[in-house]
Amino acid sequence: MNRPLLSLDRVSKSYWRGRHETLVLDEVSFELDAGEFAAIFGQRASGKTTLLRIAAGIEPCDSGSVTFDGEDLVSRARRRGASLHPRIGWMRREGPFLPSMEMLDYVALPLLRPLRHEEAHRLATRALRRIGADHLARARWRELSNAERTLVMIAQAIVREPALLIADDPTMGLSTTEREDVLSHLRDIAEDTGMAVLMAVPDVPDMLRSHTVMSLSDGELIRPTRRSARADVIEFPRGRGESA
């Protein structure tokens, strides 16, 4: 049996504001397989971003375990400090420092230290091409629409060819058509490359393209039943007016 790529087991996290403790995550557990496109739905301040940051290793949890590709991220954070795992891609939201920077250079940024300039550019071109944005290579941030900026951010997040891509509300500020385009790209990335994609969104229709939808509220994560059991438990509502 294959082990999951990412596994969170009874992860809890609280924040303190003065003397008041707010429980953000209450024994949250889920697993993610390679090539799976999973979405976490939650309303504002439901803890989605905290959950993604813990899954990425950026933020420590108070209790529970996070295992990525067989590595214990909680122990890793204890040894080396909380930081993004090199095999996890995190989709940023900010543009480049230098307004004059071309998008090819910006997408290549995470590679410039470990690789030679030419090789970094080659991989950045490939990442842009994968999401149909290679025509933006010579553009500058200010020249891009919100949808194009989103595609560039995705390209930068996958340029190191991570095993897991994490995106926090990747379709924020986009039109319905643009959302569909971005989500189609994310699904294609998962299905074509075997990269797992985990995203948080505030709107369920954004998840139409995802394989799995989970919901987070009041610190609790609720997951669908496993696919094998699903057909037995689903019953279509008898009448629209009856539902609670």
């Binding site: 998840m207 139409l208 997951r223 669908p224 689903i234």
Partner: peptide, 13 residues
């Protein structure tokens, strides 16, 4: 009930 909704969404998606 929420889990049943998620199952239904998964089926639809």
């Amino acid at each position: 009930e929420e889990q049943a909704c998620l199952d239904r969404i998964e089926l639809l998606t």
